[in-house]
Design a protein around this nucleic acid. Structure first.
Length: 206
DNA sequence: CGTTCGATGCACT
DNA sequence: GTGCATCGAACGT
């Protein structure tokens, strides 16, 4: 059993709320020519099925949401508001469209590269970012990690973009409503590590 | 502290 | 043509 073991397909092939909670403390890693970056997941949201109006599967199968209907353990990446890539881990058995949105990380590796990427195209300088700001928010973390449409449909169990279990200490978690949506707002399908400064939004504890 | 608003591309109706 | 699973700057209190 290696120390940086990628999560298995079976980890994702489960109830989406369980996966959303169990991803807290796991490590999202992206290996590119520019270098390796990694961060501990501290905030996620579940999007579950065609009956969830906020889930991209709500309209039924389309070209964009096809990965949601595919096998678990695959990345679903899409462009939001014309400028931010958001990354999800597909969950549940094939044919059951659901995923977990990764919303925030605590940087662990490649912080210098994260700073360069965040500063690029921004008015801020690389060293003006606090560490906990680098991957706070779903759009910010994909920028820091260099995640783009190239990573859509990538295999999280073995690709350059993957999620590993690095045996980090268990975090206390709390649940809240999901952030930034106008439908399906009542469900408490957001999970986050209590007290983490990297957690986004106003609903935070600690 | 709070709220509002523009940027910016494209999937979907 | 409409509406985003966002971000950050600009404003008001």
């Amino acid at each position: 059993m290696g120390r940086n073991r990628p999560l298995s397909r079976g980890f994702y092939d489960r109830d989406t709320l369980a996966v959303a909670a169990d991803l807290i403390g796991k490590v999202l890693v992206h290996r590119t020519k520019a270098g390796v970056v990694a961060g501990a997941i501290v905030e996620t949201e579940a999007y579950i099925g065609e009956s969830d109006p906020a889930c991209h599967a709500a309209p039924g199968p389309t070209k964009r949401n096809a990965p949601l209907y595919g096998p678990p353990g695959v990345a679903y990446v899409y462009l939001n508001y014309g400028m931010h890539y958001l990354v999800n881990a597909v969950t549940e058995p094939e044919g059951s469209p659901a995923a977990v949105l990764i919303r925030a990380l605590e940087p662990l590796e490649g912080e210098k590269l994260m700073r360069r990427r965040r500063a690029r195209g921004s008015s801020r300088s690389a060293d003006s970012f606090a560490t906990h700001e680098l991957c706070r928010g779903p759009g910010n973390l994909t920028r820091a990690l260099g995640i783009s449409l190239d990573d859509n449909k990538g295999d999280l169990t073995e690709g350059p973009l993957r999620i590993e279990d690095r045996q980090r200490p268990r975090r206390e978690v709390a649940w809240s409503r999901r952030i930034g949506i106008n439908v399906g707002v009542e469900a408490e399908w957001r999970v986050f590590a209590v007290g983490s400064p990297a957690v986004s939004g106003r609903i935070r504890i600690g």
